[in-house]
Simulated scan of single mutants.
Amino acid sequence: MTKTELSAKLATGWIEAWIRMDIEWLRDHLTPDFVHTSPFGRLAGREHYIETVEPMARKSVQRLKIEEVVATNDQAAIWFENLTPQGAIPSCDWVRVEDGKIKEIQSFYDSMKVRQVLSPNEQSNLCGT
């Protein structure tokens, strides 16, 4: 498998893991020093990220639908739709792969509908490193 194929596979796996709420897949495929940046802020560390995001994802994500994946070498962009209780959010994640695992993701989306579902305290938890 080429680097480009692996990047595309990991980007797709990332969204599919959230569709299934497969936390073990995330633990197996994110580096220990994984970093996630979103409109809410930056979370560093795989375990910190999972512990912070999983309960909120269970509350705010009703369905994810992959639209397109574009990959090159050790990076991929995945375009998907996130259906929340407040409606659909077009989203894009920029995935960076290192040594066969996901090292970093930058997420791009309008956070308004997510903010309507999460409490202010939950939202503030998404800002920490």
Results as ranks from 00 to 15, higher is better:
M1S: 14
T2V: 09
T2I: 03
L6W: 01
T12K: 13
G13L: 06
G13P: 09
W14M: 07
E16W: 01
E16Y: 02
E16N: 12
E16D: 06
A17D: 01
A17S: 15
W18M: 09
W18E: 14
D22N: 12
I23C: 05
I23H: 08
W25D: 01
W25K: 11
W25P: 00
L26W: 05
L26V: 07
D28F: 01
D28W: 02
H29Y: 05
H29R: 06
L30G: 04
T31E: 05
P32R: 00
V35H: 07
S38R: 13
P39R: 02
G41M: 08
A44H: 07
A44N: 10
G45S: 07
G45E: 03
G45W: 03
G45C: 12
E47S: 13
H48V: 02
H48L: 12
Y49Q: 07
I50M: 08
E51H: 08
E51T: 13
T52E: 03
E54V: 04
E54N: 07
E54F: 06
P55N: 06
M56S: 15
A57D: 14
K59W: 10
S60N: 15
V61F: 12
V61D: 08
V61I: 15
Q62S: 12
K65T: 14
I66Q: 00
V69C: 02
V70T: 11
A71E: 00
A71Q: 00
D74N: 14
D74C: 11
A76H: 00
A77V: 12
I78A: 03
N82Y: 14
N82K: 05
P85H: 03
A88P: 06
P90S: 12
S91Q: 11
C92M: 15
C92S: 06
C92W: 04
W94D: 09
W94S: 06
R96C: 09
R96H: 12
R96D: 06
V97Q: 02
D99K: 05
G100Y: 01
G100S: 03
K101N: 01
I102M: 06
I102Y: 03
K103F: 04
I105Q: 11
S107C: 11
S107M: 13
S107Y: 03
S107N: 09
D110I: 14
D110A: 10
S111A: 14
S111I: 05
S111W: 09
M112S: 15
M112W: 11
M112Y: 15
K113P: 10
K113G: 10
V114C: 07
V114F: 13
R115M: 13
R115K: 13
Q116N: 10
Q116F: 12
V117T: 10
L118M: 10
L118D: 07
P120I: 12
P120M: 07
N121L: 15
N121E: 13
E122P: 12
Q123W: 04
Q123F: 02
S124Q: 14
L126A: 08
G128Y: 04
T129V: 07
